[in-house]
Simulated assay, not measured.
Amino acid sequence: MTVHETSIDVWPPEDIDLNDPRWVTVKEAAHIARVDEKTVRRWARERPVAVWTPGGKCWIDRRRLFSAEPPETPNLSGNVHSEAPPLPGILHCE
């Protein structure tokens, strides 16, 4: 099962309802992804995961938050493995 299919998914979407739980703020996205807000803002600039309101507020599509290709970065700490279980509901809007 794939979370999002890029071949049929049009970005940016034509109809955007920011009341839909699919859309989260930068702060909420940072909490979900367990990263700093600056990282989420960088992802929003580099990846097709965000839309901006005319007032300049950034909204992140939680379905795309983990499905976009990560940028190439060197692994300076060797093999890192987390024993933390995945959190339920992160990838699915309910």
Score class of each variant (00 low, 15 high):
M1R: 04
V3P: 01
V3E: 09
H4A: 10
E5P: 00
E5C: 09
E5K: 03
E5D: 15
E5L: 12
T6E: 10
I8L: 10
D9F: 13
V10G: 02
W11C: 08
W11N: 05
P12V: 10
P13A: 12
I16P: 14
I16T: 14
D17L: 12
D17A: 13
L18A: 11
L18Q: 13
D20W: 08
P21I: 07
P21T: 05
P21S: 10
R22Q: 15
W23S: 14
V24N: 03
V24A: 02
V26T: 15
V26G: 04
K27I: 02
K27T: 12
E28Y: 00
E28F: 00
E28K: 15
E28V: 12
A30H: 02
A30D: 00
A30R: 03
A30E: 00
I32E: 03
I32K: 05
A33G: 02
R34T: 00
D36G: 03
D36R: 03
E37P: 04
E37N: 05
E37Q: 11
K38C: 00
K38V: 00
K38M: 02
T39Y: 02
R41I: 02
R41C: 06
R42H: 00
W43Q: 06
W43A: 10
R45I: 08
E46T: 14
E46R: 11
P48D: 13
P48K: 14
A50P: 13
V51C: 10
V51H: 13
V51R: 12
V51Y: 15
T53G: 14
T53W: 14
P54L: 10
G55T: 15
G55D: 13
G55L: 14
G56H: 08
K57T: 15
C58A: 12
C58R: 08
W59K: 08
W59S: 08
W59A: 04
W59H: 13
I60D: 05
I60T: 06
R62C: 02
R62N: 08
R64E: 05
R64G: 04
R64I: 05
L65C: 04
L65A: 11
L65W: 02
L65S: 03
F66R: 13
S67G: 07
S67K: 00
E69S: 11
P70D: 03
P70N: 06
P70H: 02
P70V: 04
P71N: 07
T73K: 14
L76M: 03
S77A: 12
G78D: 02
G78I: 04
G78T: 07
G78S: 05
N79P: 08
V80K: 05
H81Q: 04
S82R: 03
E83L: 09
E83S: 10
P85S: 12
P86C: 03
L87H: 00
L87A: 09
G89N: 06
I90R: 11
H92K: 12
H92G: 04
H92L: 12
C93E: 15
C93Y: 04
C93D: 15
E94I: 01
